[in-house]
Design a protein around this nucleic acid. Structure first.
Lengths: 219, 219
DNA sequence: GAACCGCTGGCAGGTTGCTGCCACCGGCGG
DNA sequence: CCGCCGGTGGCAGCAACCTGCCAGCGGTTC
């Protein structure tokens, strides 16, 4: 294979099909993106993740995002769970110039702007180019801040529903009563509570109450 | 019996023996005191309370205390539990001139200053005197503030141990681990936590965490 | 010393909270 | 139409937490 020949893929579907296998058997994985929608690949990503879990040891993973990646509750929780699963996650306040994936420091995938709704992805193997991209990534990484540190100072973005649940918890309601109040099943309510605990980095409900007030989410 | 003849009792023991039965079968009970030590009657009070419970309906109870009555954790918890049991409790910021008990608006017991460690109690039945005392009590009561309102604005007085427990809870430790850390049994630890919840007026640990931070008891 | 008292801690049985599993449903794309 | 996917909710089993009961222990009083 000609390392100097770049391959251009159009759309996430093609990216998933043609480059998917690259994600499976790698030892080092790095990516940079403004938010989580970039590499979403609906219907593909989940399968990759599941398959990679089965395969063996997780790759060392570095993920770099703009603050937009934790603008809403769901995204933020996703990041937190990534970090909890062992990935290194950092937040970069400067706009990320080009969304990028790096695999084993050998392959780079650069995303272009969307054209007529479809984005182009360029797969680069050229050692010279990849080395340059890696070093740029590294520089950006070094000046970025760890997710945990970044999150420590600011309250998580919570949906109205989550805030409502916090108020019910603050009112001392049992799960049973609170769920009824919200017109949802007990199971779902507890799911919500668990998600909130995750966002608040709380190991117990006591801690959650503490943090909630600390962040001014209640009063 | 000559209603105008006052009876003077010396010491709490004599008070308990001679006046104890008065507490048992009353419908209305009111008392005013600076703190909880006043009418402690160690060894007697418990029996009265237990017996009165067995007897029948609780009397309507009004208790008036100085802020000193919630200076320490144990006293405050006692007041909270009184209130929870149905007693009306108010806090009077002015010094209570004379510690007083009123029974069914018919009998007044006034406590004098201690003499050689022993206090004198005067049991008054004179309708004129009692009426006057009742109206004075009523006036003081009216200008005093309900326990719940009084407590709402200020943090409860917590012992060092309780604060330590709060820190452990804030650290997200499980009861098991926290108890071990404190070198106490699980049962005792949970007792402590329950006591703290009572003082914080919390129905759940979430609420407790909230209040703890609200009162600035953590950071 | 004996009786008493408050506190402790073990135990047991209950409630509440947590979570993995799976069936179901509604929306969406093919 | 079908299949897929994300979200929901029932269920079951477990973990955590809550409490009443009681025996034991050390300190106080008589």
């Amino acid at each position: 294979m000609d390392l100097e020949r770049n391959v251009v893929l159009r759309g996430e579907a093609e990216l998933g099909e043609r480059a998917g296998r690259l994600f499976l058997a790698c030892e080092e994985f790095a990516c940079a993106a403004t938010d989580l929608t970039t590499w979403a690949m609906p219907g593909h990503r989940e399968r990759f993740v599941a398959e990679r879990c089965r395969k063996g040891p997780k790759p060392v993973t570095h993920k770099l995002y703009n603050p937009a990646a934790l603008a809403d509750e769901e995204s933020e929780r996703h990041l937190v769970e990534l970090a909890r699963a062992g990935a290194h996650v950092r937040i970069c306040t400067a706009a990320l110039p080009h969304e990028t994936i790096l695999i084993d420091r050998r392959i780079a995938i650069l995303a272009g702007p969307p054209e007529r709704g479809v984005r182009e992805y360029t797969v680069v193997r050229s050692p010279g180019v990849v080395k340059g991209v890696v070093s740029l990534f590294q520089a950006t990484w070094d000046t970025s801040i760890d997710l945990a540190d970044y999150r420590r100072d600011r309250p998580p973005a919570l949906s109205d529903e989550s805030l409502h649940i916090l108020r019910l918890l603050a009112g001392g309601l049992k799960d049973e009563a609170a769920a009824r109040r919200l017109g949802m099943a007990l199971r779902t309510y507890r799911r919500r509570v668990a998600e909130i605990l995750t966002l608040l980095d709380a190991d117990s409900r006591f801690q959650a109450g503490l943090r909630a007030h600390e962040y001014g989410l209640i009063s």
